[in-house]
Amino acid sequence: MSVIKTEDLTYTYSIGTPFEKTAVDNVSLEIEEGALVGIIGHTGSGKSTLIQHFNGLVKPTSGKIYIDGEDIWGKDVKIRDVRFKVGLVFQYPEYQIFEETVYKDIAFGPKNMGLPEEEIDRRIKETAELVGLHKDNLYKSPFELSGGQKRRVAIAGVMAMEPKVLILDEPTAGLDPKGRDKILGQIKEYHQQKKSTVLLVSHSMEDVAKFADKILVMNKAKVFCYEDTPDVFKRAEELTQIGLAVPQVTRVFNRLRQSGIDIRTDVYTTEFARKTILEYLAKRGESNA
């Protein structure tokens, strides 16, 4: 069963003023339970607004959202419970940290859920380890930590709520390549450990290509496509047309193809590129022999 389902979801800002703008336009979509989905699109393509619908922070102008088959704006649904089910990590989440210690800050979400002390303690220790926070840091003030570490604290704060769906809005923005890979790796690990659904909003095709099973491409407030990762990159040309950069390796393979070399183009990671080239060379060696 799909964990998130939307029907003709539309959201329009500032209705009736000159600034009226449709940020999400007629989106119907089903996200399967347990998937790791990458969401890409330009700034202003509506991806941030879309994900804020999933945990009820934004109420749609029209259309419906179902989480676990339940209409979240239905009569008997408490929107707060939806937020515990769908955890959302905002962009630059380190700016929402407020507690005296890292431990207390991670505890904020689980405490709001009304969990017992021991359970909260277990979750904090588990998530802290998962995101690579050292035990000694748990009792420090979060404001003493480095930027990258603060980001981990903030992400752990949402992970500790153990939501069924975890959504992260550009979790790697402003990090160096090493920190980026590390955080993405930890998110993937969380996904595998908890078997939860993870949605990852990103600007970087490379990141999404490396980690996501499926990709949702947003363009001008609409869903451009929602397919398995390899299938999305088969459409490299269309993606380039709507102004999204495909991964560099994919571009190389497209150029090879254009210059008359008979090679597949749904290549989007360097590892797979290596394999493809070796295969191709082996094949050519055979036919030459």
């Binding site: 922070l57 955890g87 905002f90 949402v158």
Partner: peptide, 16 residues
């Protein structure tokens, strides 16, 4: 704008 963002973020963590 910042207040709006922080409020959303804390609401997402179940702040009431």
């Amino acid at each position: 704008e910042e207040t709006d963002k922080i409020m959303s973020a804390q609401k997402a963590r179940g702040a009431d």
